[in-house]
Design a protein around this nucleic acid. Structure first.
Lengths: 191, 191
DNA sequence: TAAATTTATTAACCCAGGTTAACGAACGGC
DNA sequence: GCCGTTCGTTAACCTGGGTTAATAAATTTA
C-alpha cells in the first residue's frame, strides 16, 4: 500500500532506505465510503493525502447553495486543499469521496519534517507544487479561452476513462454549466 | 536594485553573504519600454524575473485572434510563464510590459543552481511555488463561483490602486467579458 | 421484480453577455 | 493647441446558457 506511494515519490526524488521506512511509518491509511468527506468546507485541511484507490471530487458551494464540482482526483494522485493546508485557513472547498476510497495521509507537521529532514525533501515539495501549479494555470487558461462545449471535449479527451465512473451532473459543473445545458451541448455534438 | 530582490527573498529564506553576492552577479537587469514583450507567445520562457519597476500583463490569444488579459504583475512581484519555463515548452501566453518596466532576471540553469546550491534553495523554490499555486487556485474558484460583476468588484477590491494604471479593456478581459459588457456592469453598479 | 429514488433529457421562456457599429471623450504626438 | 488615434459608452439585435417543470431513463432498494 505504502509501496505505491514510494514508487510514485521515486519518480521525483531519491530516497534512502531509512527514508522509505519513515514513510511507511508516518503515512496513515484511511478508508472512506462513497459519499464520505475527506475534508469538509470550512474545516482546516490538516493532512495531505495520496489516493491508493477510489476517487474524490472538489466541491465549491456557491452563495445560493449550489454545489459545483471543480476537479477530480483518482488513484495514484495526491489530494489536498493546499490553500487551506498551507496557511491553516478554513477551506473554501470540500473534498468528497465519490467511490469507496483508500487514502494514505500525512499530517502537516510530519510533512514539514519530511521537507526538512529528507535529503531531497524540499525538492520533493517543490516538484509536487510545480506540477500542481502548472495544472492550475492550464485550468485558468481553459476557463478564459474555451467555451463550455470546448471544455467538455477537452474533458472527454483527458478523462474519457473516468466518464463511466461519474454522474453527468458532476461533469456539467466541471465544464461550467447546468445539466440541461450539457445535455444541449451533447445533442449539438451528436450531429 | 538587486537589494530589493534580496530583501524580498529574505522574507522566505535565510541567505549567507556569499549567496547574496551570487544573486547580485547572476540576476541580470533588463529594461523594457511600454508595449515591449518580456515573453512572446510560442517562445520558450528561458528566464524568471523579479519586477523592480513597472507592470506586465499576461496575454492569451484565442483561436479567433482575440487577445485576453488574464493577469497582471507589478513592481516587487515575480514574473514568469512557469508552465513554459519548467518544461521548456512553447508558452501559450505572452508577457507584455504595459509600462516602462525594469526586471531583474535569472536564467533557467542559474535558477536550478540556486535551488541546488543555496542552503535553502529548494525551500525557496517550494515557497514561491506554493504562493503562486494558491493564487491560481483562488482564481479558478472565482471563475467558477463568481459572475463577471462579482469578479469586477473583487478586482476593484484587490487592485484598486492599479486601476489608474490600466485601460479598461484590460480589466474587462481580466473579468471575462467584452468591453461593452463591462460598461453595462459599471452602469448597473452606478445606481 | 416492482417500487422508489435518482439522474438525464427535453421544452419554454428569460436574460446577461456577445457582436457590430456609431458616437463622443480622452489621449498622444507634433 | 490641433489633429489623429485610441478608448469608453451606448444602442440594437442575436445567441447560448439559466431556470423551471415535466417526462423519461437508469439505479437502488425492498
Amino acid at each position: 500500500m505504502h509501496e505505491l506511494l514510494i514508487t510514485q515519490m521515486s519518480y521525483l526524488i531519491r530516497m534512502s532506505d531509512e527514508e522509505k521506512e519513515w514513510i511507511r511509518q508516518r503515512f496513515e491509511i484511511k478508508t472512506y465510503q462513497k459519499g464520505e468527506y475527506f475534508l469538509r468546507e470550512g474545516q482546516v485541511c490538516r493532512e495531505a493525502g495520496f489516493i491508493v484507490e477510489g476517487m474524490v471530487r472538489y466541491v465549491l458551494t456557491k452563495d445560493n447553495g449550489e454545489e459545483l464540482t471543480v476537479d477530480f482526483n483518482k488513484e495514484m494522485e495526491y489530494t489536498c486543499n493546499y490553500a487551506s493546508f498551507l496557511d491553516k485557513s478554513p477551506s473554501e472547498s470540500a473534498i468528497q469521496c465519490i467511490e469507496p476510497t483508500t487514502i494514505i495521509v500525512i499530517s502537516y507537521d510530519d510533512l514539514q519534517e519530511l521537507y526538512e529532514h529528507f535529503t531531497e525533501g524540499q525538492k520533493f515539495g517543490r516538484l509536487i507544487c510545480e506540477f500542481l501549479y502548472v495544472q492550475a494555470i492550464k485550468k485558468v487558461q481553459s476557463l478564459y479561452t474555451g467555451d463550455p462545449e470546448r471544455r467538455y471535449l477537452q474533458f472527454l479527451d483527458v478523462y474519457s476513462n473516468l466518464v463511466p465512473r461519474l454522474p453527468q451532473y458532476y461533469i456539467s459543473s466541471y465544464v461550467g454549466v447546468q445539466p440541461p445545458s450539457l445535455s444541449r451541448i451533447r445533442k449539438r455534438l451528436a450531429k
